[in-house]
Protein backbone atom coordinates (compact mmCIF):
# COMPACT_ATOMS: atom_id res chain seq x y z
CA UNK A 1 0.00 0.00 0.00
CA UNK A 2 1.42 3.34 -1.06
CA UNK A 3 0.18 5.12 2.04
CA UNK A 4 2.62 3.19 4.17
CA UNK A 5 5.66 4.64 2.45
CA UNK A 6 5.52 8.27 3.53
CA UNK A 7 6.76 9.26 6.91
CA UNK A 8 5.63 11.58 9.66
CA UNK A 9 8.23 12.95 11.97
CA UNK A 10 7.76 13.48 15.63
CA UNK A 11 10.23 15.16 17.86
CA UNK A 12 10.45 14.38 21.50
CA UNK A 13 12.59 16.57 23.69
CA UNK A 14 14.22 15.52 26.88
CA UNK A 15 15.60 17.79 29.49
CA UNK A 16 17.56 16.52 32.41
CA UNK A 17 16.74 19.25 34.88
CA UNK A 18 13.17 18.38 35.89
CA UNK A 19 13.46 14.74 36.89
CA UNK A 20 17.02 13.48 37.36
CA UNK A 21 16.54 9.86 36.37
CA UNK A 22 13.34 9.93 34.37
CA UNK A 23 13.67 12.04 31.26
CA UNK A 24 10.69 14.19 30.63
CA UNK A 25 9.85 15.09 27.12
CA UNK A 26 7.69 17.36 25.10
CA UNK A 27 6.02 16.62 21.80
CA UNK A 28 6.71 19.16 19.11
CA UNK A 29 4.41 17.63 16.57
CA UNK A 30 1.26 16.01 17.81
CA UNK A 31 0.32 14.77 14.36
CA UNK A 32 0.53 11.27 15.70
CA UNK A 33 -0.99 11.19 19.15
CA UNK A 34 1.54 8.94 20.73
CA UNK A 35 0.72 8.05 24.31
CA UNK A 36 2.61 10.25 26.69
CA UNK A 37 4.42 7.53 28.58
CA UNK A 38 7.11 6.62 26.07
CA UNK A 39 10.35 7.93 27.46
CA UNK A 40 13.94 7.58 26.38
CA UNK A 41 14.85 4.75 28.71
CA UNK A 42 11.73 2.78 27.76
CA UNK A 43 12.45 3.08 24.04
CA UNK A 44 16.07 2.09 24.53
CA UNK A 45 15.18 -0.78 26.85
CA UNK A 46 12.68 -2.14 24.31
CA UNK A 47 15.24 -1.98 21.53
CA UNK A 48 17.94 -3.56 23.70
CA UNK A 49 16.50 -6.97 22.97
CA UNK A 50 17.41 -9.33 20.18
CA UNK A 51 13.88 -10.68 19.68
CA UNK A 52 12.33 -7.22 19.64
CA UNK A 53 14.78 -6.13 16.94
CA UNK A 54 14.15 -9.31 14.97
CA UNK A 55 10.38 -8.65 15.16
CA UNK A 56 11.00 -5.16 13.82
CA UNK A 57 13.20 -6.31 10.93
CA UNK A 58 10.79 -9.08 9.94
CA UNK A 59 7.65 -6.98 10.13
CA UNK A 60 9.25 -4.12 8.23
CA UNK A 61 9.09 -6.23 5.07
CA UNK A 62 5.48 -7.34 5.39
CA UNK A 63 2.84 -7.59 8.14
CA UNK A 64 3.09 -10.85 10.07
CA UNK A 65 1.05 -12.75 12.60
CA UNK A 66 2.48 -13.68 15.99
CA UNK A 67 2.76 -17.35 15.05
CA UNK A 68 4.68 -16.53 11.85
CA UNK A 69 6.97 -14.32 13.90
CA UNK A 70 7.46 -17.12 16.40
CA UNK A 71 8.73 -19.32 13.55
CA UNK A 72 10.91 -16.66 11.94
CA UNK A 73 12.53 -15.53 15.19
CA UNK A 74 12.77 -19.06 16.59
CA UNK A 75 11.08 -18.00 19.82
CA UNK A 76 8.08 -19.20 21.78
CA UNK A 77 4.69 -17.51 21.32
CA UNK A 78 4.62 -16.01 24.85
CA UNK A 79 8.07 -14.49 24.19
CA UNK A 80 6.81 -12.96 20.94
CA UNK A 81 3.64 -11.60 22.55
CA UNK A 82 5.60 -10.05 25.40
CA UNK A 83 7.94 -8.29 22.93
CA UNK A 84 5.04 -7.21 20.73
CA UNK A 85 3.28 -5.72 23.74
CA UNK A 86 6.33 -3.67 24.67
CA UNK A 87 6.89 -2.60 21.07
CA UNK A 88 3.24 -1.57 20.76
CA UNK A 89 3.46 0.52 23.93
CA UNK A 90 6.17 2.58 22.25
CA UNK A 91 4.21 2.60 18.97
CA UNK A 92 7.11 0.91 17.22
CA UNK A 93 4.73 -1.76 15.96
CA UNK A 94 1.11 -1.48 14.83
CA UNK A 95 -1.53 -4.17 15.04
CA UNK A 96 -4.19 -4.86 12.44
CA UNK A 97 -7.00 -7.38 12.42
CA UNK A 98 -7.39 -9.61 9.41
CA UNK A 99 -10.11 -12.02 8.48
CA UNK A 100 -8.96 -15.60 7.88
CA UNK A 101 -10.64 -17.67 5.11
CA UNK A 102 -12.38 -19.75 7.79
CA UNK A 103 -14.03 -16.64 9.22
CA UNK A 104 -11.79 -16.25 12.25
CA UNK A 105 -10.04 -13.01 13.07
CA UNK A 106 -6.35 -12.79 13.65
CA UNK A 107 -3.86 -10.00 14.23
CA UNK A 108 -0.97 -9.09 12.01
CA UNK A 109 1.78 -6.75 13.11
CA UNK A 110 3.86 -4.35 11.09
CA UNK A 111 6.86 -2.24 12.02
CA UNK A 112 6.05 1.42 12.50
CA UNK A 113 9.58 2.73 13.07
CA UNK A 114 11.32 4.63 10.35
CA UNK A 115 14.22 6.37 12.11
CA UNK A 116 15.46 6.99 15.62
CA UNK A 117 17.72 9.94 16.20
CA UNK A 118 19.23 10.87 19.53
CA UNK A 119 21.10 14.14 19.79
CA UNK A 120 22.72 15.98 22.66
CA UNK A 121 22.72 19.73 22.53
CA UNK A 122 22.80 22.51 25.12
CA UNK A 123 22.42 20.28 28.14
CA UNK A 124 19.46 18.25 26.92
CA UNK A 125 18.81 15.15 24.88
CA UNK A 126 16.51 15.32 21.92
CA UNK A 127 15.08 12.06 20.66
CA UNK A 128 13.56 12.19 17.24
CA UNK A 129 11.36 9.22 16.51
CA UNK A 130 10.19 9.08 12.93
CA UNK A 131 7.26 6.77 12.42
CA UNK A 132 5.92 5.38 9.22
CA UNK A 133 2.73 7.12 8.33
CA UNK A 134 -0.45 5.61 9.66
CA UNK A 135 -2.97 4.34 7.16
CA UNK A 136 -5.82 6.82 6.58
CA UNK A 137 -8.44 4.20 7.42
CA UNK A 138 -6.74 3.39 10.73
CA UNK A 139 -6.35 7.06 11.62
CA UNK A 140 -10.01 7.63 10.81
CA UNK A 141 -11.02 4.67 12.97
CA UNK A 142 -8.89 5.88 15.88
CA UNK A 143 -10.39 9.37 15.66
CA UNK A 144 -13.96 8.13 15.40
CA UNK A 145 -13.54 5.61 18.21
CA UNK A 146 -12.03 8.39 20.29
CA UNK A 147 -15.19 10.44 19.85
CA UNK A 148 -17.49 7.70 21.05
Amino acid sequence: MGERCSVAAKRIEFSRSEKPDRFSYRCRNDELTVSEDTDLSTVLAVLDDEYAREILTNTSIEPMSASTLSERCDASLPTIYRRLERLEECHLVTEETELAPDGNHFSVYSANLDRLELSLEDGSFALELTYRDEDVADKFTRLWEGMR
Binding site: E96, T97, E98, L99, H105, D135, V136, A137, D138, F140, T141, W144, E145, R148
Partner: peptide, 18 residues
Protein backbone atom coordinates in the same frame (compact mmCIF):
# COMPACT_ATOMS: atom_id res chain seq x y z
CA UNK B 1 -14.88 3.65 1.67
CA UNK B 2 -12.14 4.67 4.11
CA UNK B 3 -14.57 4.13 7.00
CA UNK B 4 -15.38 0.68 5.62
CA UNK B 5 -11.66 -0.12 5.33
CA UNK B 6 -11.26 1.03 8.92
CA UNK B 7 -14.01 -1.41 9.89
CA UNK B 8 -12.33 -4.28 8.05
CA UNK B 9 -8.83 -3.53 9.29
CA UNK B 10 -9.64 -2.76 12.91
CA UNK B 11 -12.72 -4.86 13.43
CA UNK B 12 -14.63 -1.79 14.64
CA UNK B 13 -18.39 -2.11 14.01
CA UNK B 14 -18.96 1.60 14.63
CA UNK B 15 -17.01 2.30 11.43
CA UNK B 16 -19.41 0.08 9.46
CA UNK B 17 -22.41 2.11 10.66
CA UNK B 18 -20.51 5.29 9.86
Amino acid sequence: YQAYRGYRRNDAPSMLYL
